[in-house]
Write a protein that binds this DNA or RNA. Sequence first.
DNA 1: GCTTGAGTTCGCCCATAGGCGAACTTCTAG
DNA 2: CTAGAAGTTCGCCTATGGGCGAACTCAAGC
Lengths: 121, 121
Amino acid sequence: MTVTELTVGQVAKAAGVTANAVRFYERYGVINAHRNSGNARRFTVDAICRIRLALAAQRVGITLKESAEILAGIPPLSGDLGLWVGAGEELIRMGRSRIDRLQATVDELASMDFLQNDPRA
Amino acid sequence: MTVTELTVGQVAKAAGVTANAVRFYERYGVINAHRNSGNARRFTVDAICRIRLALAAQRVGITLKESAEILAGIPPLSGDLGLWVGAGEELIRMGRSRIDRLQATVDELASMDFLQNDPRA
DNA sequence: GCTTGAGTTCGCCCATAGGCGAACTTCTAG
DNA sequence: CTAGAAGTTCGCCTATGGGCGAACTCAAGC
């Protein structure tokens, strides 16, 4: 089974982003690429996983950098689903703990009395 | 009891941000202020609530703009705790639904076989 | 009257997350 | 061979979320 090499365009389409974004992710270290003889980036399918996870994580306030750090624990070319799922779960835990902090802020707000002592009047 | 008027610096300290940030939030519409005779911003305590909520929401990927839209439903000078808690809960719901999408992405990943087989399928 | 502290506006700077066009190369097909 | 599609780098542009200094005003206290 040959490792299928993917081009920027193919990764972009599969991940639902633009080719520009894919290049940006590579520069940024979210995904890895090697170059072919003509200096064109070649990716493997794991790039798509990384991008998908990073995008979903972005939506819960996790930066690309943070995602990249977590994804760095997964070897390029990895087909080990356990690693991917583990990384995903870590991102989810991060997101949940942030939600918990938001919840705590709301709870704190709910117990504040200074809002009731009427301002005005 | 008079409406306690707060200065930029007081709000900043109470909300745990810089005075610069407070001015930014006002320009941005997250908080409201009126001006005194010397053109200085004067806030009420609700500005502190708005900032606290917006900051916590930011951490779960909710932008200041989104928070501002939700907070816009609360009248300035509001001492109605129900409104604040309701807005907080809406932000939490938003955050949770984003987490759910991240979870769905991970689940999808966990059921993908192309990582194991040859992607060229 | 003068200093001091806190406020004001203005404007430039930073990082994050890209978009977009220019100009050029490389690959593939006819 | 040649055209077109897709790749490359470079660099400027954008929005978001602020930081920071400059220069100025305002109110209070000595």
